[in-house]
């Protein structure tokens, strides 16, 4: 099957919802991927603008559109808009927590989540609740946390977590986020695994001979020590993946968090990317 074609059979079997028109997938070449936007409007706007300027023809959203940040309504509205235009989106644990108070979150996230719940209307909540946990398109799998048990929200911290995820799928490339730190794992035919911390703007060809797990950095709350917003571009024709960073107006994002009375540490961490 040519890469980029939508695999209808498999996804129907797993009863995944398809919030975008499949036909677009065969056409697109350059995909922009965004993970962990976390209601950070200036960061998401900067990433979208940069990706469009680089010629991204299609968009994949890897979950956690809300939580932590001060612009949840705008964030969800933008995601709904993008999905209506054909973007693919999966559900993250924070999106899940909006309609599910039993979802475990840390204290600060809990405070932000209670505030977020009151900000979102019925339409937004229904939209988030209806998003699929995973989406499979041709050789690619999109999921928020990892592939072996998407609803358990396990972090891909190391090689062992990566092996578990890659063994659970036959996709050539799995794209995920959740941990807010970019990483790239691959497994060879002989079962040997490699781990790599990608450098910014260094294109990496995802060779056909092995399978890959691409963990994206976060748009709205980077935690790898680099405060710039993170996204990725993937060329489905050449299989080249590029991890990108864009600077954005952190003052504005932090101001929005403070203005809404959310924990100050959520604003401060944006400046240091931790």
């Amino acid at each position: 099957m040519p890469s980029g074609q939508f695999d209808k059979g498999e996804s129907r079997k797993k009863n995944y919802m398809l919030p975008f028109r499949c036909k677009r997938w065969g056409e697109c070449v350059l995909i922009a991927l965004f993970a962990d936007i976390h209601a950070n409007r200036p960061a998401f706007e900067a990433c979208l603008a940069a990706a469009r300027a680089q010629g991204a023809a299609s968009i994949v959203l890897l979950g956690d559109y809300v939580g932590y940040g001060g612009d949840p309504e705008w964030s969800v509205a933008t995601v709904m808009d993008l999905v209506a235009q054909g973007a693919a989106a999966v559900r993250g644990n924070h999106d899940n927590a909006v309609g599910n108070p039993r979802e475990q979150l840390n204290l600060e996230a809990q405070i932000a989540m209670e505030w977020t719940r009151n900000k979102l209307g019925t339409a937004e909540r229904q939209f988030l609740a209806a998003l699929p946990l995973t989406l499979s398109a041709g050789d690619y799998l999109y999921v928020h946390s990892e592939a072996s048990n998407p609803s358990a929200w396990t972090y891909v911290r190391d090689v062992d977590d990566a092996i578990r995820s890659m063994k659970a799928t036959s996709a050539h490339v799995t794209f995920c986020g959740h941990i807010h730190r970019p990483a790239l794992y691959s497994i060879s035919v002989t079962g040997k695994i490699t781990a790599f911390t990608p450098s910014t703007n260094g294109p990496v060809p995802l060779l056909q001979g092995r399978r890959w797990l691409a963990v994206l950095g976060s748009v709205g709350q980077p935690r790898d020590g680099n405060p710039a917003a993170a996204y990725a571009l993937f060329d489905t024709q050449t299989n080249i993946l590029t991890y990108c960073r864009v600077p954005y107006d952190i003052d504005q994002a932090a101001g929005q968090i403070r203005k809404n009375g959310l924990p100050a540490s959520l604003a401060e961490r944006l400046y240091v990317g931790r």
Partner: peptide, 8 residues
């Protein structure tokens, strides 16, 4: 800037 497949 590329994963070192030999190292691993």
């Amino acid at each position: 800037q590329l994963p070192d497949l030999m190292q691993e």
